[in-house]
Amino acid sequence: MRNAFAAIMTELADQDPRIVLLSGDIGNRLFNTYKAKFPSRFYNCGVAEANMTSLAAGLAMSGLKPVTYTIASFNTIRCLEQIKIDLCYHDLPVVVVGTGAGLSYARLGATHHSLEDIAQMRTLPGMTVLCPGDAQEVRAALRAAIGYGHPCYVRLGKKGEPVFHSSEPELVIGRAIVLQQGEEVALLSAGNVLPVAVEAGKRLAAEGVSTLVASFHTIKPLDEELLAGLFGRFRVVATLEEHSRLGGFGSAVGEWLLGRPRSTTCFEILATPDCYPHEAGGQSYLREAYGLTTEAVCQRIRQALSGEPSPPPMTQGHQPKEPKKR
């Protein structure tokens, strides 16, 4: 996804002289082509995300189209208030790009996990939240975000993820892309967990479970039209995300669902638990621990189809703690 981001930025900057790329001291060689072509429209803003975000606002107020880029957690929660006030309150055309989102940088530890960014970004009025599922969707998401004219957050994984689209898909903000049709189970995936959803969809289909797989590249605004066609008609609808089950994609669908007539559809949120890992471990290790592997997803769906209730979500320490004695 990272390389696709650098390539599409170079293409778009070639077409639009208003585009300015701001980096928070990452992407050392990633932007070499961009920097060589547009030296006056690239700034390494240093390890200073608050200033990078306010500065982007000032550029946008002056008619430019800035894109800020750094590690997802640092580019969202670190500078949350700058995004809230300088970008969203002013409704400015600034694209905030977070790389290494979810558990992409799992090995670097919880300081580098970004499992709250969707929740934080989607509470901001006027913010659009995009979570492309593969490199082609990254290209399309950047194109759409830069052309949108309002604040957008684009959430990226790392590099080398599987690609599912043979070419850049047509991406309409707020309209999910259905990758596999089905009638019984719907796997709705947000962002870099798409390979898990696609594999699970194939496996379930092979087992005779008619499974729809969709890439919800936009979490805000939600594709309510697609959702409305699933609940009441499908037996199981499951959301998948490499993000906390609190406030993320699943929460967004759940909030939407509260305003709908009750249906018999079983709704499952497959997300990361409300806890920090305190041990070392890579992305696969933590996906395994958190039930976000292809087999764990399939197993959860099989259980839901057989009417078994969902297991209680894992929390910090798995249960309420004793208050600490002072």
Partner: peptide, 13 residues
């Protein structure tokens, strides 16, 4: 920060 963005925009433009 906003002022810096405006000042930088002047240079770019």
């Amino acid at each position: 920060g906003i002022g810096i963005g405006m000042a930088l925009a002047g240079r770019i433009q």
